[in-house]
Write a protein that binds this DNA or RNA. Sequence first.
DNA 1: CTTTGCAAG
DNA 2: CTTGTAAAG
Lengths: 320, 320
Amino acid sequence: MPKRSRKEAAEGEEEGSRPAKGGRGQAKGVEPALLYVDPPLREVTPGGQRSNFKVTSWNVDGLRAWVRKGALQWVQEDAPDVLLLQETKCAEAQVPPEVRALPRLPHQFWASASGRGGYSGVGLLARERPLDVTYGIGDPSLDAEGRVITAELPSLFLVCAYVPNSGRGLARLAERQRWDRALRAHLSRLDARKPVLLGGDLNVAYQELDLRHPRANRRSPGFTNEEREAFGELLGGGFIDSFRFLYPGVPNAFTFWTHLGGARGRNVGWRLDYFVLSRRLRGALCDSKIRNEVMGSDHCPVSVYLALGEGEGRPRNGAD
Amino acid sequence: MPKRSRKEAAEGEEEGSRPAKGGRGQAKGVEPALLYVDPPLREVTPGGQRSNFKVTSWNVDGLRAWVRKGALQWVQEDAPDVLLLQETKCAEAQVPPEVRALPRLPHQFWASASGRGGYSGVGLLARERPLDVTYGIGDPSLDAEGRVITAELPSLFLVCAYVPNSGRGLARLAERQRWDRALRAHLSRLDARKPVLLGGDLNVAYQELDLRHPRANRRSPGFTNEEREAFGELLGGGFIDSFRFLYPGVPNAFTFWTHLGGARGRNVGWRLDYFVLSRRLRGALCDSKIRNEVMGSDHCPVSVYLALGEGEGRPRNGAD
DNA sequence: CTTTGCAAG
DNA sequence: CTTGTAAAG
């Protein structure tokens, strides 16, 4: 069982295909759709401030294939202030010209796995030029795969992350744990200077609520105790899971579905893509959206809406 | 220039895209279609014997993809007595069930590259059970790639061959020359017992007439002097190129077009697929067809029609 | 199941 | 340009 990957196990027979407890009897293997429907956008903070900053994050599962599928059309309509992309599988020189030419996102920053451009990789595309951009999380032994870009904006640090998968048979779980620790340290260092907004594929479903078949995936990459606890420490360390903060207890809100076996059609998925923010940014949070109707990858895009004002950029000891 | 492969050079600018000498002036790079149209079938020999044996040969460029494209439909309509397939790229265990189930071709024999099933490979499928079937050309150092199947039928030996490509930069030309010699020896040994019919992708265009851009391909795999001379020795050794025997001087009759650059649409091709037969079978030859309208591979199928009678199977010293 | 890379043609 | 393959998810 530990030999099966998270994504394989997501399709597993162990527990997933039993009829729901207490439900009406169902034919073996048939599951109800249980689609999460994203509610209408909340355009203001509880305090009444209007959203003026939108970030969208999308694990594209291969930037070039994603472009061929026409995803850029959706990006233009979505019109985020910043677009975070993960799993571009693409060296900077291979980024399609249509992406480079996006009129509303002229400031583009790319990272890819050194040596093999077709693996991992992230991008950060911004409407306005960041004050500064850095790469990685400060540990060269963990920064060879092009997984993190950090942009300093006037009022916050924006971090795009593609957290490494723990691998088949959890072969890379130990490395993943080092990675989770290093990311947390990176975020803390940033947070000491300005509030932080982290977006991306964090490759963990935090709670049972966050994947369709928790029991079947206890030792699957993305739902091990080790990965979940690391995420818990992030939340305990002054950060908020924006979606869950706004929508506690809401089930079936997934951002990833394996390609195998038509999982997406049955909404057999995982919530792996997040916007996590410094606690002191919570008053600026308008909404956190899961665009699960949008096709083009095995992940769907997620967006966060903030209301950034005069006071937002103040340093940590000035707030909270 | 020797670095470019045959198939790349087929598309080259060197000589190919000049307007034809003496022709009307043409826009640069535009070539006339010059499609070869297969004439109506000759159903009888010059001596008046009706064809009673049909063999079709096709380099399928991947048996599984070829099946997915629906080529089996055409095979059923073609209804050959024997079907020879090359470049199956498929271990015997991976042959699609639809192929195994072909109702009119129940006797199937497969060869593939030992170790890597996805490379090379041939098949021989027969309506009637052969008397005997052997594999290879009698040299273990040349027989590891599943390129030859020989079936003994009552009146002749039928050989299915996929001759190795000389490779980019002619890296395998020396091996190819050994291969050509060994194939010739194999055919001679068979021919001493019964007449021989060889069909398959012989990976050589014999004369300038047999490819669209001879000048540009002087050192391209498939048109080197070495390969052409080896084919000439076969013809000098008592064998006939059935198509050219029946259609001397007919140009633009190609059986292969590279996938690159829309070569097939412009009929920028090569004649690489042949039926070659023992000279003493020439009286049995009705026709040799090139089905260049049939899609499903980068090669088209070719067919030969013979009239086999009482006297056909007699040993060599009894005829010619 | 799909995306990369690659080798081969 | 298309077929295989493997590694990765």
